[in-house]
Design a protein around this nucleic acid. Structure first.
Lengths: 154, 154
DNA sequence: CGTTTATTTTGAACTACTCAAAACAAACCG
DNA sequence: CGGTTTGTTTTGAGTAGTTCAAAATAAACG
């Protein structure tokens, strides 16, 4: 058995990941990271729902703060689909893109079209230093596509 | 002189554009379209600020409704930069992308890297029907880049 | 184990946006 | 040109998502 301070098995690894990013390790942070690994593309509220089951007494504000700290440290990635709260995921550094269903808001990861470092270079950078690129494909998922062709009034 | 019902010169053209999209022509709609042509990448609030100078008595709700109607009719395009309210622009149908300064929130249009129909095809569409693609480059504009290299504490 | 420094809680406030009902105006038509 | 229909705007209120600030608390370092 490992010397985990929490009862869950992967806690030590989560703690290491957090510390490796230069952040202090706390119980709420471990819980948030675990929640996010289990439920990718989660909103702050959804993360909070899961965290409070594991660690009662955690506040929403803590979750917002932790997600901001993780994002700043490069541990998680944030993205903002239109008409939806901000979403967070652990998959980071691989510059993947997102498929968003405009009907049911389902999210799917998709690898970049053009190899490793994709759409990272615009035709004219207008003097900008580009730090990251976010590609979002809006469409209809398989299920919603079928519904929409049957029933024209969503 | 044209038979414009408003005093501004380009009003007739704006009215035609709105009607051509299948929408009723009203004074607030003309004012919103004019504001948006003058100030691209504007938030609803910013559009409202300009509209109310031209047409006192217009409500914010009307502006939100008009922008939603225009977007639905394909007359304007909406996009959602992270941490900012939704932005609207008239340039539509050419699938251009956006450069966003993460420091001062400046927006610049940029044409697509890969010819006409760009990043519109993901490597694996996971059963989705893709309707549109949104590419956002996050970075530092020329001015903020200079400031950042001089002053490390933003 | 105490000190320092960062984090979390607590409580409140704010922004962007949406909803619903009543008042109103544009478009169509005789 | 005036009535009718249909869609739009105003008015008034409400909500979700997020942020702020100060006090309480816990992690890390020595």
């Amino acid at each position: 058995m490992s010397t985990a301070s929490s009862s869950l098995p992967d806690t030590d690894l989560l703690r290491q990941t957090i510390r490796a990013s230069g952040l202090k390790v706390t119980a709420p942070r471990v819980a948030v990271l675990r929640a996010l690994q289990r439920l990718p593309h989660s909103s702050a509220e959804r993360v909070f729902d899961r965290v409070k089951d594991e660690l009662a007494g955690t506040s929403t504000q803590a979750v917002y703060g932790i997600l901001a700290a993780f994002t700043g440290a490069g541990l998680v990635r944030r993205f903002d689909p239109p008409g939806s709260p901000a979403l967070f995921e652990c998959r980071v550094g691989d510059n993947h893109h997102h498929l968003v269903c405009i009907r049911c808001s389902a999210i799917r990861d998709v690898d970049c079209v053009i190899g490793e470092a994709p759409c990272l270079e615009p035709s004219d950078d207008a003097g900008f230093v580009i730090l990251s690129a976010e590609v979002t494909f809006n469409g209809l998922c398989e299920q919603c596509r079928t519904i929409s062709s049957t029933d024209d009034n969503p």
